[in-house]
Structures are given as structure tokens and as C-alpha cells.
């Protein structure tokens, strides 16, 4: 059934001059399809990781303690002001090598290139999330804060039950934009040979010289993935909408 469909598709594409015959070779098709899976997995892990990093950094930025605020601000500036690719190289070629030495050889190091991509994307986009959430926290009216404090909320309870829930709503459009960028940035994994979609495609076109054919697929797949993220973001905005507030 599947084989019949693939043969039909490859034959049809050939008519308009596109060479998709790699789909008929298990040796090429299977790694390429798993590349799509790895891209999705990279995106999911990095989305969760970046949101976690973003909330923690935003909470530190909102702190009244300068010794918490200062380092958080410094880390955010570092993460935002250097290229993601350079951060990934630095993590993989410097930190990972150091870790190998400390652990006495690469075979003892449990971290794979996949982990490093997730880590770097989580930190990088976490810094952007933190700034978006900071804008949201600053948009919480001082009077709302006063009301919570008057009820006996501690600073932490205020952040958890009032400031962050409201900040999330205010900054959701910005967070969604960050996450769309994050999905596209998973392609950086190709730089350290993580077998995600871009790298898996590269492996095929260096053999077959069918760059255009693969580019069409790559564009379509990233477009679908980012569209799903955008739709989910909008759905969450609707779900979290505060009835009667500002609409």
C-alpha cells in the first residue's frame, strides 16, 4: 500500500522533473523520516526547557534582591547578544570536551549532541521568554499587587498566583513568536551532526544532487510545524482570556 503510493508519487514527480527516488530506498528514506521525528522531538524538548528557563529567569528579574537580579540580567544579556550557532559550538566543542576530560573519556559522558542542542536552545530562547514575561509582570497594575499583599501574600505567592498568571496572558503573543523562532532554530542541530530534518536532508542531497526537491519538503515541513505552534499559541490565548477584561 505505502510502497504503491511512494512509487506513484516518485513517478508523478519525475514527470515535472523532480527527483524523489530517495524515497524508494529504505537506506535513505528511514533516516530521513526519523529526521522529521528528531526535529519534532528537539522542538518539544526545547520548548518545554525554554519555558522553564524563561519563568525562572523572569522570577529572578522580578526579585527585590540585587544578588539574584544581577546575575540573571547578565546571563540574559549574554544569551541574547551572541549568535545561537556560536553558543552551540561553544557548548559542544568547549563545554562538552571539558566534560569528557572530567569524566575520563567521551564514553563516560552521558550527554549527546541532541542534549546540547536542547540545552542551548532552552537557554537562548529562555532569555527571550524572560524578557517577554518581564514586560508582562511590569504590566500588572501596582494596585493589584497591593491587593494581594494586603491579603497576606508573600512576594513568592504574589509572583506565583498573581504576577506570573497575568504576565503569561499579557506576553503570550510574544512567547508564541519566540517559540516559532525556536522551532526554526532546531535546524542548527545540523551544525553538530544531530540527525534532524535539515541534517538528514543534507546527507541525501550530497549523494543525489537533488537539493531543490528536498528544499521543497524542508520548507513545507517547517511551515507546518511553525503553523501548529502559532495555532496552539492562539488557542491558549483564547483559553486564558479573562472575560470582560480589555475586550
Amino acid at each position: 500500500m505505502l510502497e504503491k503510493f511512494l512509487h506513484g508519487f516518485v513517478a508523478a514527480a519525475k514527470i515535472i522533473g523532480l527527483n524523489y527516488s530517495f524515497l524508494l530506498s529504505d537506506y535513505e528514506r528511514i533516516p530521513w523520516l526519523s529526521g522529521i521525528g528528531i526535529t519534532i522531538l528537539l522542538a518539544l524538548c526545547s520548548i518545554l526547557g525554554s519555558l522553564l528557563v524563561g519563568v525562572v529567569l523572569a522570577a529572578l528579574l522580578a526579585s527585590r534582591q540585587a544578588w539574584l537580579r544581577g546575575p540573571a540580567r547578565g546571563l540574559i544579556e549574554l544569551l541574547r547578544n551572541t549568535p545561537t550557532l556560536v553558543q552551540l559550538y561553544c557548548a559542544f566543542f568547549v563545554l562538552n570536551m571539558l566534560l569528557n576530560q572530567v569524566l575520563g573519556g567521551a564514553e563516560h559522558n552521558p550527554l549527546t549532541p541532541f542534549h546540547w542542542v536542547v540545552l542551548v536552545l532552552s537557554l537562548h530562547y529562555g532569555a527571550y521568554h524572560a524578557e517577554a514575561l518581564r514586560a508582562g509582570i511590569e504590566a500588572v497594575p501596582a494596585t493589584t499587587r497591593e491587593a494581594a499583599l494586603s491579603l497576606g501574600f508573600s512576594r513568592v505567592e504574589l509572583l506565583r498566583h498573581v504576577e506570573l498568571p497575568l504576565a503569561l496572558r499579557f506576553s503570550l503573543p510574544a512567547l508564541t513568536s519566540n517559540l516559532i523562532n525556536l522551532v526554526k532554530s532546531t535546524a542548527l542541530g545540523a551544525a553538530i551532526a544531530v540527525g534532524e530534518l535539515t541534517y538528514a536532508s543534507l546527507m541525501i542531497w550530497v549523494q543525489r544532487d537533488n537539493v531543490l526537491e528536498l528544499m521543497i519538503f524542508i520548507f513545507l515541513i517547517y511551515a507546518v510545524l511553525t503553523y501548529v505552534v502559532a495555532r496552539l499559541g492562539r488557542a491558549l490565548e483564547n483559553y486564558l482570556r479573562m472575560p470582560g477584561y480589555g475586550h
Binding site: 493589584t144 491587593a147 494586603s150 497576606g152 498573581v162 497575568l166 496572558r169
Partner: peptide
Amino acid sequence: SESELIALRKRIGFVFQQYNLFPH
């Protein structure tokens, strides 16, 4: 300390001109 102020505020209700309910 914050905890002393919290203990006080738990005993005192405050109602504001602008209501200040939690909109979410």
C-alpha cells in the same frame, strides 16, 4: 520581616477604591 507583616495583614481586611480583584 516579611513574615511578621504577613501575620499582621492576615488579620486586617483592606477594601480599595478600584476594587482590585484578580482579573484572571
